[in-house]
Nucleic acid binder design. Structure first.
Lengths: 258, 258
DNA sequence: ATTAACAATAAACAATTTGTTAATTAAAAA
DNA sequence: TTTTTAATTAACAAATTGTTTATTGTTAAT
């Protein structure tokens, strides 16, 4: 019946519609400080920002010029915001399979002076290899990595300070409560490499202690020891390798230790 | 690079804008089955759906008529999607302070036959008292509670099956990994009442066991014993009452027991 | 060739927490 | 007065954690 008839009678102009729908992406990467040989890494969680140009393509003053911003763009009417984020990021980085997750919507009236523009916000995890490369080849004045400690002190465009603050909160939770950390690591990794990733977002003593963590990693159901392979990336002595098993994990706060 | 940026800006006019922006709400409530005196409750997590009318307010054939749907409506240009959800729900229920959380965006092209309509999805937690009331006073053919086990078998409007499936997943996680369970409980509650809420979404043996759970609740940093008050709601014997402390809790999966 | 350095592990053991079963308490109902 | 039942405590073995102290295997320095 009548979905078709109903559709004919429906007046789409009854409501005011948004002036735009964008997909924005907080691009996270983890860099290893001084990567000495035979040393476990020390890592830092970084976020990539772009600097908005002073002038637009027509030579006029750009909106929110010279401020740092997260990359993004308009969503097309034949794709989802998630697909737009993936498309933009993969086109730009030329990497496939980037991990992206939607985490929030920013739609406060007046957030964008150009009109009623709704931002669908995502975070992405990109290998540091790409970003260093990218920064080297470009003129690169307009792209920069910032640590999550310093980024909120910058002069940020639009409501991007709020978006970034939320993204940091979300990725922190996800790193600790899901297996998303795997996206910051090679397929096979040592306990100290995983530990270094987690240390970027927690001070939990059970994670900080080498002995406890290297003992515990063996009993985690979502991590498996790689048989017959070792590495000397982090130590002179050959070191065991682990890999993540694809698995959903939910651990209630009601059964944890405090 | 700035060229690329400028190009994106320039392209703004090329993209069409969405035909609508809606805020939709999965309304959850927990009902107590046969609430006998002096018995700990047995609870069920339910979701409230409305049946879409055959005709709309102007007497025209309604789209997706006679299907079950989650409530929602168009966001106005002077409010956020979150505010719209709150406004609609609080207007309708006449309750203030309802817990609402945004959890996803649904924007797949073609999801709504009326056009390019973006749905900002929320879940809400409403006391069962209201919903029984509401169902009694209305003609009530158009509003119904469904258990989360049966709801996905219904004939649901638009992409609401996906939205509801996601909402169930999110609220399950939140119930176990945050203190959101407090919104299903009175200010002061017994261990067995909290246990009953959690049992609606988990089979974790440490939560199922009365002895373990009543012992554990005493050591949870985000729950506090209420001094000098007891209740006989759940037992003939006077029972201790607890309350939630406002607190963020993150427990890493890497330090849990398995 | 020996030795120092050092990350990764293992060993050891006390302290803590959990799983489990049994006992106790308190108030309503029979 | 006795029975019933949820809440709670007790008790203890089993498992896990925190912590300190070795041990291992390799590189680099002497």
């Amino acid at each position: 019946m009548s979905n078709k008839q109903a559709l004919k009678q429906y007046d789409i102009k009854k409501y005011r519609t948004p002036d735009g729908y964008t997909s924005d992406i907080c691009v996270f990467t983890i860099i290893s400080e001084k990567n000495e040989a035979y040393k476990p890494p020390t890592m830092d969680l970084m976020i990539m920002l772009i600097k908005r140009a002073a002038l637009d393509s027509e030579g006029n003053m750009n909106i929110e010029a010279n401020k740092w911003a997260i990359p993004g763009g308009f969503v097309q009417d034949n794709e989802t915001g998630f697909q737009a984020a993936k498309r933009e990021l993969e086109e730009e980085t030329n990497i496939s399979g980037i991990h992206i997750k939607q985490f929030g919507v920013y739609d406060k009236p007046g957030r964008d002076p150009r009109g009623w523009i709704i931002s669908n916000a995502h975070y992405a995890i990109v290998p540091d290899t790409y970003l260093s490369l990218r920064k080297a080849q470009d003129d690169a004045a307009d792209i920069e990595l910032f640590s999550i400690k310093e980024v909120l002190n910058l002069n940020l465009a639009f409501d991007h300070k709020q978006i970034i603050a939320d993204a940091i909160q979300v990725i922190t939770n996800d790193l600790l409560q899901t297996t998303v950390a795997k996206n910051f690591l090679p397929e096979n990794f040592t306990y100290s490499e995983l530990q270094a990733v987690l240390k970027t977002v927690t001070n939990d003593p059970a994670i900080l202690s080498d002995q406890s963590f290297s003992r515990k990693i063996k009993s985690l159901p979502f991590i498996q020891e790689v048989q017959g392979k070792t590495t000397t990336r982090t130590s002179k002595r050959a070191t065991k390798l682990y890999r993540f098993i694809e698995m959903d994990v939910i651990k209630p706060i009601y059964t944890a230790r405090y």
